[in-house]
C-alpha cells in the first residue's frame, strides 16, 4: 500500500525568484500524525500547499495516495487531502456555518441528502452543531477553528493538513483542539510552532530550515535534543523537561 503522501526531491521557486523549497523528501503513512516544525520562513506553509496541488513543485514529485499531483490530477489530490488554513477567516467565506461546511460536498456534486448528512456529521464531530445557522464572522476564534476543521471533515479526506491550528486560541480552545486532533483516525500533517501540541498529538517530527528537511524522527527523541533544536531556531518544549524519558 502506498504512503498517503510521498514527496521526492521537491523544489519550488516563487515567481519572483525566491527559492522556498530545496529538494524536500518525506513520507506520511496512513493514520499517523506528523509535525512539521521550523522557524518562520522555513518553508512550512509552502510545503503544505504542495500537498493538495495549490502549488505545483518546480522540480521533483509529489504523490498523493500513489497518484502524482499534476494539473490533471488536482481534483484527486484535493479530495484526498483536506487542508485547514492558518486563518479561519480565509476558509469560512460563506454566509452561514452550515453553508460553509456544505460547500465542499456540494462542489463535489453530491446529492442534497448526502450533502446534508455529511454537514451534520462533520459539525457534530467538532461539537459545533448548535452554530449551524450563525454567520462565521460572529464566532469566537476557537469556534471558527472548529468549524474550519468541519468544512474539511465534510469532504471525508484521507489526510488532514493543518497550518498553525492552535494560533490565536485561548487555553480552553487549545485544549479542545488537542483532544480533537488526537481523536482523528486520519493521517495528520500539522505545521506549528506549538511544540507542546506536537508532543501531545504527534508521533513523528520533521524539522525544516531554509527550505530543507534538516531532521526527522520520533517526537521525544528529536525535541529533547536541545542543541539541535536551538540550531534551527526552535526550543526544547517545557513539557518534556518535567518528564523523565529514560
Amino acid at each position: 500500500m502506498p504512503s498517503v503522501i510521498e514527496i521526492k526531491d521537491a523544489s519550488y521557486v516563487y515567481p519572483d525568484g525566491t527559492q522556498a523549497l530545496h529538494a524536500v523528501s518525506l513520507c506520511v503513512e496512513a493514520g499517523e500524525a506528523v509535525a512539521l516544525v521550523g522557524a518562520n520562513g522555513a518553508g512550512k506553509s509552502t510545503l503544505l500547499l504542495h500537498m493538495n496541488g495549490t502549488l505545483l513543485a518546480t522540480q521533483g514529485e509529489v504523490r498523493v495516495a500513489g497518484v502524482e499531483v499534476s494539473r490533471l490530477t488536482l481534483s484527486h489530490a484535493r479530495r484526498t487531502v483536506g487542508m485547514v488554513f492558518q486563518d479561519p477567516d480565509d476558509q469560512l467565506f460563506m454566509p452561514t456555518v452550515e453553508e460553509d461546511v456544505a460547500f465542499g460536498p456540494r462542489h463535489a456534486g453530491m446529492a442534497q441528502d448526502d450533502v446534508e448528512r455529511r454537514t451534520h456529521e462533520a459539525l457534530a464531530r467538532v461539537g459545533m452543531s448548535h452554530l449551524r445557522m450563525r454567520p462565521p464572522y460572529r464566532l469566537s476564534a476557537g469556534e471558527k477553528r472548529a468549524v474550519a476543521i468541519a468544512t474539511v471533515l465534510a469532504m471525508a479526506p484521507g489526510v488532514l493538513v493543518m497550518d498553525e491550528p492552535s494560533s490565536n486560541l485561548d487555553p480552553r480552545g487549545r485544549r479542545r483542539l488537542i483532544a480533537q486532533l488526537r481523536s482523528f483516525e486520519h493521517a495528520r500533517v500539522i505545521a506549528t510552532h506549538d511544540l507542546e501540541l506536537v508532543v501531545e498529538v504527534c508521533t513523528r517530527v520533521i524539522v525544516l530550515d531554509g527550505g530543507r528537511v534538516v531532521a526527522q524522527g520520533p517526537v521525544r527523541e528529536l525535541l529533547n535534543d536541545e542543541a539541535r533544536m536551538l540550531a534551527h531556531g526552535l526550543e526544547r518544549p517545557h513539557i518534556l523537561r518535567h518528564q523523565h524519558p529514560h
Binding site: N52, R78, D87, D90, F93, G104, H107, V152
Partner: peptide
C-alpha cells in the same frame, strides 16, 4: 488565500 481555500474544497468557478 480565500481562492486557495475555495480551490481546496473543489471550487471550479461556479458557486453552488
Amino acid at each position: 488565500r480565500i481562492y486557495h481555500a475555495m480551490q481546496a474544497r473543489g471550487f471550479d468557478g461556479r458557486i453552488r
